[in-house]
Design a protein around this nucleic acid. Structure first.
Length: 279
DNA sequence: CGCATTTGACCCGCGC
DNA sequence: GCGCGGGTCAAATGCG
């Protein structure tokens, strides 16, 4: 962000060659604009922070460790074969690290990630293909959502602590919300980058949209599907990009990047100066 | 027959 | 202390 001192620095512009009165008027205008710029930047930062905080709260009503059961730690009996042909094909809607509020002396961070995947509303299977092999160990109907919630454990490595909860969105039954808890302590199964045949008609698209500490990003994987995304895939990608959530996140990210770019703010200030009357 | 999934029972934390 | 609700277990069941 360009500071008021920077913009008002006579060495930076033509103000030095102006009469005193004009220079002072311009300086006042610049000061006003700089102040407004600063307020807007603060507002954007505030909104962004609020959004991220809201996501983390909505995404996980309770800490995964807050209800730890003593017997849970003993469950390492799961085993499974490497999943030969799976690939990440999900729309990553949220990506938040949550500090466990439990007064755990180890104070370890549990990574919680929410992934939304568009599905066919008529598809009742709670399966999200993400490249890992999962073993379902439970299903429950929760109070806030008529759709059942499925519980999965990573079945690839017996000691992998990652769990996954999958449930249809309460607002939109064509969206599957998967909540991942923890991080895999093993590499993704070999061959996971290979595409399986698309089992679900409304399956996830080969793109990922993520919001993390560096802001929202979108990645289109056009190298898959035998050399390129199919037309339906591209249509889905376009639908995702056109969603209000993504666009809002995109606008915020752009604002953040632009206001943080010194070159941009300088160019903007210069452009505004040129548009000022008597200039 | 072995493995994965289903599903009812149970455990445990939280709020009242 | 009790009830509620989310999360997990484990026996039953289904499937290849």
């Amino acid at each position: 962000m360009r500071t008021e001192a920077d913009i008002g620095n006579p060495a930076c512009g033509r103000a030095a060659s102006l009469p005193n009165d004009e220079a002072k008027v311009l300086e006042a205008k610049l000061t006003q604009m700089s102040e407004e710029n600063r307020r807007l930047t603060e507002m954007i930062a505030y909104m962004y922070t609020n959004q991220m905080a809201r996501h983390s709260l909505e995404g996980e009503p309770a800490s995964p460790t807050s209800k730890k059961r003593s017997r849970e730690s003993t469950d390492t009996s799961n085993s499974g074969d490497a999943n030969s042909t799976k690939k990440i094909r999900t729309v990553e809607a949220e990506h938040v690290d949550v500090e466990s509020p439990v007064s755990d002396s180890t104070c370890r961070r549990i990574k919680i990630r929410r992934v939304c995947t568009p599905i066919d509303p008529s598809d009742t299977s709670l399966v999200v293909k993400d490249g890992y092999q999962w073993r379902k160990y439970g299903q429950k109907v929760t109070r806030d959502n008529p759709s059942p919630r499925a519980y999965f454990r990573c079945a690839f490595a017996p000691s992998c602590p990652v769990k996954k909860k999958v449930q249809r969105s309460a607002e939109n039954s064509s969206v599957l919300e998967a909540t991942y808890e923890g991080e895999h302590n093993h590499p993704q199964p070999t061959g996971a980058t290979e595409l399986p045949s698309c089992a679900t008609p409304g399956g996830p698209v080969p793109c990922s949209i993520s919001i993390n500490s560096s802001g929202p990003t979108i990645t289109l994987d056009l190298t898959k599907n035998g050399g390129g995304a199919t037309q339906p895939d591209l249509t889905k990608v376009c639908r995702e990009v056109a969603s209000p959530e993504f666009q809002a996140a995109l606008v915020e990210q752009m604002a953040r990047v632009l206001t943080g770019d010194r070159n941009f703010t300088e160019a903007l200030a210069a452009a505004i100066l040129r548009k000022l009357p008597d200039y």
